[in-house]
């Protein structure tokens, strides 16, 4: 396998992006940041890959206009996944492994606020027996949370502690849209919203975009003092059928982690957990010990831009290496209802 590293990362998160669902206007400054970080221009990027969703934007081919932000004449080597851009990063990593390209810019974007997100996402379910009931994302998460609570796997206090840590970590940071030091006790005083969930247990509806620059070998070393080398990356999927899988664990996250190899020595894990109890599931599924710092960025509970939030977790985990704050980190992304699909990557200085 070739040595491939994250050498650039840029992101934006907000309550409501005031521009078009193509988000071209938001991608232009993100790409500019990536160029500034690497000293590269468009022509130094061998491969482009993005992640986004037509149903989030409410129209077919929503990703097509995003190509404008690249400035794609002369033409570019480019691809797109209808998934969180973490999987676009995976495709780009594979492309670099083929030896056909040495550098890639990966981006994801989504205007979650354009529709009623928790309703739109009901379209991800079985179209014959589930979508016609329009089960919203929050209700589905509530089913999962209660299963764990009543099985004694976690409790509301543990969930509140996840939220308290996330909000406290997010304070003073540039990108989270929710933040503020707080305690589990304070949070538990809030009313239930979707029993057993409180609003703070659910990621906020977030608009945003993110971009990551990947480079192989010396190309990475040339532009980054301390590249975040990807030492393992893998993903895996479970059945969507709610009655057909164990909802209080994440078998696919466990399998992805196993495919990545040992997680020993991971200092920071940025977990993409859109609901508080899902962080508890993921920590268990990935076998992360108490010594692993979880999502110091604030995590998805403080900002969860659809289709880039997973890529942002990888970017945050990489940035802590690039900035010299950690030597080995983990980035995780999830996709689909109730942690159906999971991607794990481990990076090292």
């Amino acid at each position: 396998m070739r040595d491939v590293a994250v050498v650039g990362f840029a992101q934006r998160q907000m309550d409501v992006f005031p521009g078009s669902p193509t988000m071209v206007e938001l991608l232009v400054p993100l790409f500019a940041e990536c160029y500034e970080q690497t000293g590269w221009t468009r022509s130094d990027i061998d491969f482009w890959c993005s992640g986004s969703s037509d149903y989030l934007a409410g129209r077919s081919f929503s990703f097509v206009q995003a190509v404008d932000a690249i400035g794609a004449l002369p033409p570019v080597n480019e691809s797109h996944v209808e998934m969180d851009a973490a999987w676009a990063l995976y495709e780009a990593w594979v492309k670099i492994q083929t030896g056909e390209v040495d550098t890639a810019l990966v981006y994801g974007f989504g205007k979650s606020s354009a529709g009623l997100l928790r309703r739109v996402l009901a379209l991800q379910l079985d179209p014959y027996t589930l979508t016609p009931l329009w089960p919203d994302t929050v209700s589905l998460a509530g089913l999962q949370a209660r299963l764990g609570i009543e099985a004694g796997l976690w409790d509301e206090k543990a969930m509140a502690e996840v939220v308290a840590r996330s909000l406290t970590d997010a304070e003073g940071r540039e990108y989270p849209i929710r933040s503020g030091a707080t305690t589990a006790a304070e949070l538990l005083a809030a009313p239930l919203y979707a029993d057993p969930l409180r609003k703070h247990d659910c990621a906020p509806v977030t608009d945003g975009a993110a971009a990551i620059v990947l480079a192989a070998g010396d190309k990475a070393r040339d532009v980054c003092e301390r590249p975040a080398w990807i030492t393992g990356i893998a993903h895996n999927v479970d059945s969507l059928h709610l009655g057909g899988r164990e909802l209080t664990t994440s078998a696919s996250a466990t399998r992805a982690a196993a495919a990545v190899g040992s997680l020993d020595g991971v200092e920071i894990a940025e977990l993409h957990a859109p609901f508080s109890h899902q962080e508890l599931i993921l920590r268990e599924a990935l076998g992360l010990g108490a010594d692993v710092r979880i999502s110091p960025s604030g995590g998805a509970l403080t900002g969860n831009p659809m289709f880039s939030a997973g890529l942002i977790r990888i970017g945050e985990a990489a940035s802590s290496i690039i900035r010299g704050e950690a030597g080995r980190t983990l980035g995780h992304a999830t996709s689909g209802p109730l942690l159906q699909q999971n991607l794990v990557t481990v990076m090292e200085a």
């Binding site: 009623l116 309703r119 009931l133 329009w134 089960p135 919203d136 209660r146 979707a194 029993d195």
Partner: peptide
């Protein structure tokens, strides 16, 4: 009932237009 969650604010298309529970 194996598990349930409470829908305090139903969205259009759901089987009931008043608060209800989804249940497995």
């Amino acid at each position: 009932v194996v598990t349930w969650s409470w829908v305090s604010e139903p969205v259009p298309g759901q089987p009931l237009d008043r608060p209800f529970a989804y249940a497995l």
